[in-house]
C-alpha cells in the first residue's frame, strides 16, 4: 500500500518542549489506524504532528504531495455562538479543494449534497449545527470530512459524546467510507473495543511513561500488552470504559 505519511525519528511536543520520542511511523493508504493511550498521553499531539498542525521538535514528517485530510476534531472544538447551518459546515469540507478567494462551484455543491446524503444528514441541512445532538454533530463533521474527498480521514475521539447505538452507527459509517473511497483512517479513541473491532494497526502512546508502540492489531491488542500498558487486567473485556478501574480509558 502507498505511504501517505511517514514520521522519521520524530520527537513530538509543544513550543520546542519534547514530550515523546523518537517516533517511527508510517500511515498507508486505505489502512485503519487506531491511536490509544491515557488522557494527556500525547495522542492528539501525535495526531496534529502527523497533520502538520504542530511542528515536530526534531526529526522529519513526510507527507504525500497534495495530500488532502478530512478532519473530524474533538467534540467541543466549535464555538456554539456560531449560527452556521449543517449545509454550511459540510461545505467547509470542500474548501480543501476551493482555495481562499474562490467560491464553491456547482460540482462542489453537488459533492456537498452527496456527502450529506451518505452521512444521513440531508434532512438536517438547514438546521443550525449548534442545535444538533452529539451523534448528529459527528455525522455532520464526517460528512464535512468526506466532502473534501480526502486521502486520509482523521478522527479525534469521534464517538466520545454519543451513546452506544450512535457509536456503532458512526463507526459503521466510517468503515463504509473507508471501503468505498480507499481513504486511510486515523482515529484517536478512548474505546479499546472500538479500536479492536475496526483498526488494522494500533498505536499505543503514553508520553508520561515515554511509551510509543506501533504494530498490527493482533500483535498489540492482547490482554498482556494492554495490561502492561494501562496497568490493569483486561481478562473479560477489552473496554476499560466499562470494566477497567477508575475509567482509566485509553
Amino acid at each position: 500500500m502507498k505511504k501517505l505519511i511517514r514520521l522519521k525519528d520524530v520527537t513530538i511536543g509543544y513550543d520546542g518542549k519534547a514530550i515523546l520520542g523518537p517516533v517511527e511511523l508510517t500511515i498507508r493508504r486505505g489502512e485503519f489506524t487506531g491511536i490509544l493511550g491515557p488522557n494527556g498521553g500525547g495522542k492528539s499531539t501525535l495526531l496534529k504532528t502527523m497533520l502538520g498542525l504542530v511542528p515536530p521538535v526534531s526529526g522529519s514528517v513526510d507527507r504525500e504531495q497534495d495530500i488532502v485530510f478530512g478532519y473530524v476534531p474533538q467534540n467541543g472544538h466549535f464555538d456554539p455562538l456560531f449560527p452556521v447551518s449543517v449545509e454550511e459546515v459540510v461545505s467547509m469540507g470542500r474548501y480543501a479543494r476551493a482555495p481562499a478567494g474562490r467560491t464553491l462551484s456547482k460540482a462542489d455543491r453537488e459533492c456537498v449534497a452527496r456527502s450529506m446524503e451518505m452521512a444521513g444528514v440531508s434532512r438536517l441541512a438547514r438546521r443550525t449545527f449548534r442545535s444538533l445532538s452529539g451523534g448528529e454533530k459527528q455525522r455532520t463533521l464526517i460528512a464535512r470530512a468526506v466532502a473534501g474527498e480526502p486521502d486520509a480521514l482523521v478522527l479525534d475521539e469521534p464517538t466520545a459524546a454519543v451513546d452506544v447505538r450512535g457509536e456503532a452507527a458512526i463507526m459503521e459509517l466510517v468503515e463504509s467510507i473507508r471501503k468505498e473511497s480507499g481513504a486511510a483512517v486515523i482515529m484517536v479513541s478512548h474505546f479499546l473495543r472500538t479500536a479492536a473491532k475496526y483498526a488494522e494497526r494500533i498505536i499505543l502512546v503514553d508520553a508520561d511513561k515515554g511509551v510509543f508502540r506501533e504494530g498490527a492489531k493482533p500483535e498489540l491488542m492482547t490482554s498482556g500488552v494492554l495490561a502492561d500498558f494501562f496497568g490493569f487486567n483486561f481478562e473479560s473485556d477489552l473496554d476499560p470504559q466499562t470494566t477497567g478501574p477508575g475509567g482509566g480509558g485509553a
Binding site: G52, L53, F69, Y71, P73, D79, Y95, A96
Partner: peptide
C-alpha cells in the same frame, strides 16, 4: 469558525 481546519487546508 474552525481555524485548525483552515490551517490544515
Amino acid at each position: 469558525f474552525d481555524e485548525e481546519s483552515a490551517r490544515l487546508f
